[in-house]
């Protein structure tokens, strides 16, 4: 008898499961599912305007970081859980390229995206670039004079002063590794490996993600280390989120002379096998419109990809005169960096 009761309860649970999977009724707005990384953000009224315009309901599925996002897409090729994916970047794109994850699409404003940005995805039509950003060293202004070069950080005055993220688990960590590869090179008398070995000897601290590095270890937030790997927009974000108490950033970007920063470009694509591919394409076009591009700085703290977009006043703290590194990467190369770095730093 008790067996029967339990089995009935389990059957009930099972029927709820099936019920939830049932398709929606007619006449309701079409549900557009957009798979995004956890940092995705946008103005709610813009999304509502899109929904009204297309008689749609936008559902955001959040997938963790860019790596998890891409893993999810890879696990469900041809049978996607969403219609559109946003947040694949030029470091994770090589993992999905040529695997049939996305279906090709030429956005209406594609020509307004700078050619060198598109080139970071090999000008592939599988994805449409939406925004970009740079990772740089951030310095806590309370701590005196910032370092002037990358090399300086391997010297005694900077012992135990730097905190970075693990490139195996963190997107900014991987971008900073790419910047050091591009700066020091793979071959020669002093390679990126030598640099990291010296950093290790000088007490660099490695955290698994940005949040632990910035919120826990960075001296701006109760930690002990005045130099952190973060974004070039973080000082501006400090002012924006300073609750009106800050007129100037408490932190600053450290970009050594002649250093070329790795440029991270984030893109969106229509997933192959999507239920509503046409609506998905319209959503990507919508992301390139002026209205959406203009709010990118204050919602996601990255640079809009369409040239000539009007920017907010406080964004001046995020403007940096940097050259993007010309580094081209394929999946095998990125894997090799991470493996070599892990061997060097984590064993």
């Amino acid at each position: 008898m008790r067996l029967r009761t339990l089995t009935m309860l389990l059957a009930l649970v099972a029927s709820v499961l099936v019920g939830c999977a049932a398709p929606s009724r007619e006449g309701e707005p079409t549900e557009l599912r957009v798979l995004v990384h956890s940092s995705f953000d946008a103005k709610q009224d813009l999304i509502r305007a899109f929904e009204d315009e297309h008689h749609a309901k936008v559902t955001l599925l959040k997938a963790g970081d860019a790596n998890k996002l891409v893993s999810r897409a890879l696990l469900n090729i041809g049978n996607p859980e969403a219609d559109v994916l946003y947040g694949v970047d030029n470091l994770t794109f090589p993992r999905v390229a040529g695997k049939g994850v996305f279906e090709d699409f030429t956005a209406t404003r594609r020509a307004q995206i700078p050619a060198d940005v598109r080139a970071q995805f090999g000008d592939s039509r599988a994805v449409t670039p939406i925004d970009y950003g740079y990772v740089a060293l951030n310095f806590d202004n309370k701590a005196g004079t910032p370092p002037a070069t990358f090399e300086e950080l391997t010297q005694a005055p900077w012992r135990n002063k730097l905190v970075v993220e693990d490139p195996a688990t963190s997107s900014p960590g991987l971008q900073f590794l790419a910047t050091t590869v591009s700066y020091f090179g793979e071959t020669g008398a002093y390679t990126w490996r030598d640099y990291w070995r010296d950093l290790k000897q000088n007490g660099v601290l490695v955290t698994d993600g940005w949040s632990a590095a910035y919120n826990k270890e960075f001296s701006r937030n109760k930690g002990t280390r005045p130099v952190v790997v973060s974004y070039t927009t973080s000082p501006a974000a400090e002012v924006f989120y300073g609750e009106g108490k800050l007129t100037e950033p408490p932190t600053s970007n450290v970009i050594p002379k002649g250093a070329k920063l790795f440029r991270q470009v984030e893109a969106a694509g229509v997933l192959a096998g999507a239920k509503h591919p046409e609506l998905g394409r319209q959503f990507i076009d919508f992301m390139l419109r002026d209205a959406f591009q203009q709010q990118i700085p204050e919602t996601m703290f990255v640079y809009p990809v369409v040239s000539g977009i009007a920017l907010p006043e406080w964004w001046k703290w995020a403007s940096v005169d940097v050259q993007a590194s010309p580094l081209q990467v394929d999946a095998a190369t990125v894997d090799r960096w991470v493996r070599e770095w892990t061997e060097l730093m984590r064993r």
Binding site: S38, S39, W210, S211, Y214, N215, S230, Y231, S234, A237, E238, F240, Y241, G242, E243, K245, F301
Partner: peptide, 11 residues
């Protein structure tokens, strides 16, 4: 988790 993913005192 999401609030901790952004810089600044407010977050």
């Amino acid at each position: 988790y999401e609030a901790l993913g952004r810089p600044g005192d407010a977050n």
